[in-house]
Simulated assay, not measured.
Amino acid sequence: MDTKFDFGEPETANTVYIRRVATSSLPKEIREQLRGLDSMYAVHDSAGEQLALVRDRSLAFILARQNELTPVSVH
Rank of each mutant, 00 (worst) to 15 (best):
T23Y: 02
H44G: 00
E32D: 15
V21K: 05
S73L: 15
M40I: 07
L53W: 01
L51H: 04
N14H: 10
V43Q: 01
R35D: 11
A13V: 12
F7A: 13
G48I: 04
S39V: 08
L63V: 06
K4Y: 12
R31D: 01
E49Q: 15
R65G: 04
S73I: 07
V16S: 00
F61H: 10
V21Q: 07
L34T: 02
V43T: 04
T23K: 00
T3R: 14
S24Q: 09
I18A: 02
L34I: 01
R19E: 15
N67M: 03
L34P: 01
E32F: 06
S39T: 08
R65E: 10
L37N: 07
Y41K: 03
G36S: 02
Q50P: 07
S25V: 08
R20D: 03
E32C: 05
G36N: 01
I30H: 07
R35L: 12
V54F: 03
T3G: 11
E9F: 10
F61D: 06
A52Y: 10
R31E: 05
K28W: 08
R20N: 07
V21L: 05
S46F: 11
P10M: 07
F5W: 13
F5H: 14
R65H: 04
D38H: 08
L59N: 11
Q33P: 00
I30T: 12
E11H: 09
Q33I: 06
F5R: 15
S24K: 13
L69F: 01
S24N: 10
